[in-house]
Design a binder for these strands. Structure first.
Length: 445
RNA sequence: CGGGCUAUAGCGCAGUCUGGUAGCGCGUUCGUCUGGGGGACGAAAGGUCGUGAGUUCGAAUCUCGCUAGCCCGACCA
């Protein structure tokens, strides 16, 4: 993309409403614009990141064998009356009345809808196991939205629901989700630690939250420092294998890691003192096993091999897609701006033309721009009539992980400069070599 | 939902106490010089001062209502 033709309304000054880094930087980098309290428009740059994250979530869900669908944002209150949650959910649920005076609501989650779909189409154990998910906007009418997209009222979330014949199968679904979540977050360049959590209004017995460590996190967390050394990496795993998934779960949850909701001082004291850590964390996902909590009242049953009908065992699993944009920035920024991990960067490489209008510089930039695109990369070419300093500041702010700097001075010696946003280290090389290096850097992404 | 605060140009702010023709910085437009980390000079555009009522000869400024937004707490993915 040529910056001169893009829509990137960056701000030089910090809007006074923004308190934390991600909110401030998202506004400054022209990623979002507040529409009303806790509700945001996603401007082109922010939308691009949101889509990258969404794409990774989709790929990893399907890798684990989960099936995508799409349910509506507006739901009928009737289903919620059936599950008993219409009255339980409280003020957080945005209630709407349509022209026929029917009670509707903007869905804060989708257990009721999915259970309704399941019960009307699935009657046999032969159709199990089944895990359906979607990525859809939700609305929770928070009393006090804050921190930009980290705690908005409208948010994009992946929510998935597993249906299994037995508790044992459902627990495998739970474990499988934990494994696939580990992979998902790691692919985004994030470390998210599974911690034992509280089940809240979803209800249920087993639940883990995934937390990204960050000073601005909303929860206080307590953990054994060994846990941050764990990496899922690119190990191959058979998602259908109960044993394999359980082994990963045990590996990642055997050490102490809890949020303040479930924190137990006595248990924590058993961790060697030098490994005890207290920090803050941002919740970016949660998995639940809740058995027959919805299937029983809503009549989601199947016939088993023995001919008897029984309610299915369920769980639900969420990833806060829009919140992840904020969490990623909280975990990846400096005083100059955002530092995107390669996997989610809105633009992978920035090209800075130091002297717009200079024949050699223009031609070299053009060649790099086309060359990167033909290698399947997504560059942002700053071709504006701006001074060098302004262009550098813009690139640093929007956080392209790599930058190619092109100026007449370097071109006299046949070189351009390739700079890592993260380390700040630069290397001079020919334009052709820069193209090859970029292709190599992003080959695995 | 308790407590505190704010609303003046696209953004950040001053002006309000003490009523008298609305200002600064950044950004934007045009021109010239510049050109390796938000450059300089010159010119210009841009505001019914959140909204409604009241007091007054006169209201951004004083009074009351309303709306929106922010912060702390409780709550929450």
């Amino acid at each position: 993309m040529r910056l001169s033709r893009y829509f990137l309304p960056i701000l030089k000054e910090t809007p006074s409403d923004a308190q934390i880094a991600s909110h401030r930087l998202m506004l400054r980098a022209g990623m979002i614009r507040q529409a009303s309290a806790g509700i945001y428009s996603w401007l082109p740059l922010g939308y691009k990141v949101l889509r990258r994250i969404e794409q990774i979530v989709h790929e990893e869900q399907q890798r684990a064998g989960h099936i995508p669908l799409l349910m509506p944002t507006i739901q009928s209150a009737d289903l919620w009356r059936e599950s008993g949650r219409y009255d339980d959910y409280g003020q957080e649920m945005l209630r709407i009345r349509d022209r026929h005076d029917r009670d509707m609501l903007y869905g804060p989650t989708n257990e009721e809808l999915i259970t309704d779909i399941f019960r009307s189409h699935v009657q046999s154990y032969k159709d199990l196991p089944l895990t359906l998910y979607h990525i859809q906007w939700k609305f929770r009418d928070e009393v006090r939205p804050r921190f930009g997209v980290m705690r908005g009222r409208e948010f994009l979330m992946k929510d998935g629901y597993n249906f299994d014949l037995t508790k044992e199968d459902a627990l495998h679904s739970y474990n499988r989700h934990l494994v696939s979540y580990l992979r998902t977050y790691e692919r985004m360049g994030l470390q998210a630690i599974p911690m034992r959590a509280d089940s809240g209004p979803i209800g249920g017995d087993d639940t883990h939250e995934f937390l990204v460590l960050a000073d601005t996190g909303e929860s206080e967390v307590f953990y054994d420092s060994q846990i941050t050394d764990l990496k899922f990496g690119d190990r191959a795993i058979d998602y259908d294998s109960h044993d394999a998934c359980r082994a990963v779960l045990e590996e990642f949850t055997s050490r102490y890691a809890r949020t303040d909701e479930t924190h137990d001082e006595a248990e924590f004291a058993k961790v060697p003192e030098e490994r005890r850590r207290t920090a803050r964390g941002i919740e970016v996902g949660q998995i639940f096993y809740f058995g027959t909590k919805y299937s029983e009242p809503m009549g989601a049953t199947v016939l088993g091999p023995d001919g008897t009908r029984s309610p299915v065992h369920m769980g639900s699993h969420g990833i806060g897609v829009s919140r992840l944009v904020g969490a990623l920035i909280e975990a990846n920024h400096d005083d100059k701006g955002i530092i995107w991990p390669e996997e989610v960067a809105p633009f992978q490489i920035g090209i800075v033309n130091l002297k717009q209008g200079d024949t050699d510089a223009d031609a070299a930039c053009e060649g790099l721009y086309q060359g990167l695109k033909s290698r399947g990369l997504d560059p942002l070419y700053d071709d504006r009539e701006e001074r060098a300093g302004a262009k550098f500041a813009t690139m640093d702010l929007v956080g392209c992980p790599w930058r190619i700097t092109v100026g007449p001075r370097g071109l006299k010696n046949g070189v351009v400069e390739l700079t890592s946003r993260r380390t700040g280290e630069s290397e001079e090389m020919s334009p052709e070599a820069a193209l090859d290096r970029c292709a190599q850097i992003f080959a695995g992404v």
